[in-house]
């Protein structure tokens, strides 16, 4: 963690966020602040509402009630659901990143790896081909993709490489906030470790704030500072990651922690 962690004001404020699908609860009355440089893990089983929450916070899904406020680069606070659609899209493309569980959802599979990364740079106004390519190659290197693969399409990449490419595509514009939905979900264990180590290094090096949805408590332990446990759309426990895992208080968290298989 860098000194940015101690900045006085949060980057994101979520207050009373709820989403219902008719009579069914997606997530109910969720509130939290997220500071620069802080990684928040949202854990829970399938159907607990963690992805609904992530989508509502990242403006991909309209909440039923509640507010999400974001501190812009000029330090002004904006309520996301009161922004215009175009402005919100611009924010998502430049200041935010979204890493999907399935890399195919976050990549363009039929253009080259280099273009996948370069495209985000062009979206923020970069026009110089040489610079774009150089930056793309640099970022592919940082996510451990060799330079000679830069002209290949992600279709020709393994799952782990695709996921690393997706991360490069998201980080190239130097976002301040990144959302990750089960970033290691579909990967082999050996590939997971490599990816986690990479994400961990990048997050602390760049001082990124991140919200990571995962059902894997080991991922939460390794990546996050703070943890939120969800069940049936409700937050049942929220606190320092070490504390939640070493001394779980809620019955459901105790069940989750005690269900981890030891190897």
């Amino acid at each position: 963690m860098t000194s940015q962690t101690m900045s006085a004001e949060p980057l994101l404020r979520v207050a009373g966020l709820s989403k219902s699908y008719g009579a069914r609860i997606g997530c109910d009355d969720v509130s939290f602040d997220l500071w620069p440089g802080e990684v928040l893990a949202v854990v829970g089983e399938s159907g607990s509402g963690k992805t609904t929450l992530l989508n509502c916070v990242s403006t991909r899904l309209l909440p039923t009630s509640g507010t999400v406020s974001y501190r812009m680069r000029d330090d002004s606070w904006r309520e996301l659901y009161r922004m215009g659609e175009a402005e919100r899209r611009f924010l998502m493309r430049t200041d935010w990143g979204f890493v999907h569980q399935n890399p195919a959802d976050g990549l363009r599979m039929t253009v080259s790896a280099g273009a996948n990364v370069g495209e985000r740079l062009m979206a923020v106004g970069d026009r110089h081909y040489g610079n774009i390519r150089a930056t793309a190659v640099d970022w592919l290197g940082r996510v451990e993709i060799a330079e000679d693969r830069v002209d290949d399409q992600p279709r020709a990449f393994s799952g782990g490489m695709r996921q690393r490419l997706q991360i490069a595509r998201n980080l190239v514009t130097h976002p301040r906030l990144i959302f990750m939905d089960e970033p290691t979900g579909g990967l082999d264990v050996s590939v997971q470790a490599r990816l986690l180590d990479l994400v961990r290094g990048l997050v602390s090096e760049l001082g990124l704030a991140a919200i990571v949805v995962t059902h894997d408590l080991a991922v939460a332990r390794l990546l996050s500072h703070r943890m939120m446990v969800m069940k049936d759309g409700h937050v049942v426990e929220h606190g320092l990651t070490d504390r939640v895992l070493d001394d779980p208080q809620a019955p459901y968290t105790q069940l989750l922690v005690s269900s981890i298989l030891q190897v």
């Binding site: 963690m1 500072h225 703070r226 606190g239 320092l240």
Partner: peptide, 20 residues
């Protein structure tokens, strides 16, 4: 949690029994 992390970083060190 934020205060705990700041205290751990600057004031309170810990050598655990096992390396994580």
């Amino acid at each position: 949690p934020r205060e705990v992390l700041a205290i751990r970083r600057d004031t309170l060190g810990y050598v655990s029994q096992f390396l994580r």
